[in-house]
């Protein structure tokens, strides 16, 4: 009896540790989601800008707000800058995707492990009840 209660205490501890790990992973995931949201919004904005730039006449005046001042920019230059920015954001999003997938895998395996521990605790308790 004593040994079984000790075992169940060990299992409880294990469960707690695993639960902590899991919550850490989940925190990472939610952080990842936030960053991704930010980038997605930026991507949308940049695409909008690109669309509008494409619609502008070639001789239109385009300015970029740098700090407090508007700096006149070449159309071609502005276009290239926006494209580059979009490329960068897409790459970043891809990177975030892959890390997210990693994290989710980790999360699932942790969940499974937790479930196993829970089952062991349950079976232990069931055994105790019978005894």
């Amino acid at each position: 009896m004593a040994s079984s209660s000790a075992a169940s205490r060990d299992l409880q501890k294990e469960l707690e540790a695993k639960a902590n790990d899991l919550s850490k992973i989940q925190k990472d995931i939610s952080k990842n989601h936030q960053v991704r949201k930010k980038y997605t919004i930026q991507l949308g904005e940049n695409e909008l800008v690109l669309k509008e730039l494409d619609l502008l006449d070639d001789d239109a005046n385009v300015y970029k707000l740098i700090g407090p001042v508007l700096v006149k920019q070449d159309m071609a230059e502005a276009n290239a800058n926006v494209r580059k920015r979009i490329e960068y954001i897409s790459a970043e999003l891809k990177r975030l995707d892959s890390t997210l997938r990693d994290l989710e895998e980790k999360q699932n395996s942790k969940k499974e492990a937790i479930f196993k521990v829970q089952q062991r605790i349950q079976s232990l308790q069931a055994g105790k009840d019978k005894a």
Binding site: L48, V49, E52, L53, L56, Y63, I66, L70
Partner: peptide, 25 residues
């Protein structure tokens, strides 16, 4: 009109052109 296109980019537009941009938005 000086229209903000987003991301700090502005363009000089006439009223008509501005309205088009706004409608797209």
């Amino acid at each position: 009109f000086m229209v903000l296109l987003g991301e700090g980019y502005y363009a000089e537009r006439t009223s008509k052109q501005t309205v088009e941009i706004l409608k797209r938005r």
